[in-house]
Simulated scan of single mutants.
Amino acid sequence: MRLDKFICKSTELTRTEAKKVLKSGEVQVNGEVAKNAAMQVHENNTITIDGQQLSARGSRYYILHKLVDTICSNVDEVYPSILHSIEVDKAFDLHIAGRLDADTTGLVLITDDGRWSHNVISPKKQCQKTYRVWLRTEIDDDKLSTLVAKFDSGLQLQGEDGLTRPAILTRVAQADLVDEESYKSEVLLTITEGKYHQVKRMFAAAGNRVVGLHREQIGDITLGDLAPGEWRELTEDEIAQFS
């Protein structure tokens, strides 16, 4: 963990205030003055400010049902950050483990544990993420088996060197009685990667267009009865999945 982050987890100081304390020379790590905010420290290090030993608070883990027109960022941009919805102290010291686009809704995991979030988002960990996808073009019975096979074998995305990892595609329903501005097919897609706009780009590569996207599950964690905009702490069993 970065030294400035450790200080914030051990005190009421903000990141800016922690950096000022570091520059003042008041911070020591294992008896040596430390001024580098990016210095990596661990739980077994002895870290003091003006002679007072620090002890970091435990990590925090939350699940949020993301609303449309919010962003997975620690700063507001065109749309507000989802961290405004997490009503806890120092919410903006948290980070998002697996981002969603502004127009995408659904399950988001939020934490201040970098190693834990790495286990969620790293392709090497093979963590499954399941999305409900609404498509502009109908997927009829003749096309379905071919499309399932394409997603299973991997798709070539524009600008990427290799194929996508195998993905699981399941058709949920066909929308026969909808107007031309709405969707024509509804599917579930499970992937183990998190490339930029990956779900949208995969369907574009397959000749379709995503008109709605909602993440339903990460690993074994689901939204359950969380309403849009609601959040809660993760249970110990949910946290343990990625520890």
Score class of each variant (00 low, 15 high):
Leu147Tyr: 10
Val199Leu: 05
Cys72Pro: 03
Ser10Gln: 09
Ile49Val: 06
Val210Thr: 00
Asp140Cys: 02
Gly229Trp: 02
Val120His: 01
Thr146Ala: 15
Glu77Phe: 03
Ser10Pro: 11
Gly162Pro: 08
Val172Cys: 09
Ile191Gln: 02
Gly212Cys: 04
Ile191Thr: 02
Leu226Trp: 05
Glu236Phe: 09
Arg60Asn: 07
Asp179Ser: 11
Asp89Tyr: 14
Gln241Ala: 02
Ala149Val: 11
Ala227Ile: 07
Leu189Asp: 04
Glu87Trp: 12
Lys66Trp: 03
Lys129Pro: 03
Thr11Asp: 05
Arg99Ile: 05
Ile110Leu: 00
Thr222Gly: 07
Glu236Thr: 15
Leu226Asp: 06
Trp231Gln: 02
Leu83Pro: 02
Gly114Met: 07
Pro228Gly: 06
Gln40Asp: 14
Glu180Tyr: 12
Thr104Trp: 01
Val21Trp: 10
Ser81Phe: 05
Leu135Cys: 04
Phe151His: 03
Thr16Asn: 14
Val172Glu: 11
Lys129Val: 08
Arg15Glu: 07
Phe92Leu: 03
Ala38Thr: 13
Ala173Gly: 10
Asp76Cys: 04
Thr105Cys: 06
Glu32Asp: 12
Gly219Ile: 07
Leu22Arg: 02
Glu236His: 12
Gly98Glu: 05
His84Thr: 00
Ala102Asp: 01
Lys5Ala: 06
Pro80Cys: 03
His197Met: 01
Asn30Pro: 06
Ala56Leu: 08
Ile7Met: 01
Asp152Glu: 15
Met39Leu: 15
Thr170Pro: 09
Arg201Ile: 08
Leu163Trp: 05
Ser117Trp: 05
Trp231Phe: 11
Glu12His: 13
Asp50Gly: 15
Gln217Glu: 09
Asp237Ser: 15
Glu160Met: 07
Leu213Glu: 06
Glu138Val: 13
Asp112Ser: 04
Gly224Phe: 04
Gln198Ala: 01
Glu181Asp: 15
Lys35Asn: 12
Leu22Asp: 05
Ile47His: 01
Leu188Cys: 09
Ala240Gly: 13
Val68Lys: 15
Ile86Glu: 01
Leu144Met: 07
Ile218Cys: 07
Glu186Leu: 14
Arg15Ser: 09
His42Gly: 11
Arg136Asn: 12
Leu64Phe: 03
Lys90Phe: 13
Gly31Phe: 08
Asp101Gln: 06
Arg99Cys: 06
Ser59Ile: 10
